[in-house]
């Protein structure tokens, strides 16, 4: 990271899904600055809204409130034509490579789609040149072009999916659990490849994972979400050294460490409550070991504290 230019900014972004039992506030007023050239890792447990947040930022979902700026320009109200241009600047890699590729198309046809949709290359020859270049940059061979997805291994498929995301030459790539369907040995390869491509192409990554050890390896900064809200954000080293929010602490200490001598000790008790009827005040208070009276009444605001942002009343006591 050599600049601190904010490439993508979310301001009190919100997404409410109506349901039979009431409104689900999947994303509830999240502020986020994505800095150009960084890897931002987003962690949180199932249902905390991390995938919804990424889809809002990508404008794949319409937000219910708040605004999103890409390079200073408000993209919240973009129309179809403008969005199509935006798709070339931000792309997405999904979790499961097995369902991300069209099984009835060859790898060539799968990869040719972005070039055709965005008129980035014309004619079969030009597209072929581009696809070969892409495949090679992913450590695959030109001959993979004529194969079908089922003929490739999981790791190879995920490389094709990444290649497709990079076809449009984007600036920001969203990676939603890109390695969770892969084995450890394959995961290492994909992570190294992603890091290499990022440096070569000067990309910004928004990396979502529930695997906290993995987020730790790949990210520069991380954000922790709980029940639709961002509870803590900061540089990766500091966050792991000294997590401030009680949820972050509980979450990190629940991660099993691959060291025989260290066992899980203080694990987080209870479960994530239903987002339909979230607890009042700070959503985390029913599970919080350091709950105070104010926590039930008021939602804590995001506060700066030693280069960290924390939404917790413990740190608002000045």
């Amino acid at each position: 990271m050599n600049s601190t230019e904010v490439i993508l900014q979310a301001d009190k972004i919100q997404k409410i899904f109506p349901s039979k039992e009431g409104d689900v506030r999947a994303v509830d007023g999240v502020n986020l600055d994505l800095i150009s050239g960084e890897v931002f890792g987003l962690v949180g447990e199932s249902g905390c809204g991390k995938s919804t947040l990424s889809r809002l930022l990508l404008r794949l979902l319409d937000s219910s409130g708040g605004s999103i700026k890409f390079k200073g320009e408000d993209i919240t109200g973009f129309d179809k034509k403008q969005l199509k241009m935006l798709r070339r600047q931000m792309s997405l890699v999904f979790q499961d490579p097995h369902t991300s590729l069209n099984p009835r198309m060859t790898i060539y046809d799968n990869l040719a789609r972005p070039f055709k949709v965005h008129n980035l290359a014309e004619g079969r020859e030009e597209i072929t040149v581009e696809i070969v270049r892409l495949l090679k940059s992913m450590g695959l061979q030109a001959e993979h072009m004529i194969r079908y997805p089922h003929e490739l291994s999981g790791g190879q498929k995920q490389r094709v999916v990444v290649a497709r995301a990079l076809a449009v030459d984007p600036e920001v790539v969203f990676l939603d659990e890109p390695t969770s369907a892969l084995d450890v040995s394959v995961q290492a390869k994909i992570l190294k490849l992603l890091a290499k491509i990022k440096d070569e192409k000067d990309l910004t990554y928004f990396f979502i994972s529930h695997d906290i050890n993995l987020i730790r390896v790949i990210s520069d900064r991380i954000g922790v979400m709980y029940l639709g809200r961002m509870v803590e954000q900061g540089e990766v080293a500091g966050m792991f050294k000294e997590p401030m929010h009680p949820y972050t602490r509980g979450l990190f200490s629940s991660v099993p460490e691959p060291t025989p001598a260290r066992k899980l000790d203080s694990v987080l008790m209870g479960e994530v409550p239903s987002p339909v009827n979230p607890p009042s005040g700070c959503h985390f208070h029913p599970r919080c070991p350091e709950k105070m009276a104010i926590c039930e009444q008021e939602s804590p605001v995001f506060n700066y504290r030693q280069g960290r942002k924390v939404a917790c009343h413990l740190y608002n006591l000045d």
């Binding site: 447990e45 509980g250 979450l251 629940s254 991660v255 099993p256 694990v267 994530v272």
Partner: peptide
Amino acid sequence: LDVSIQAQFIN
């Protein structure tokens, strides 16, 4: 399972 639930389960 999620990590915190996994930790509870393991214990």
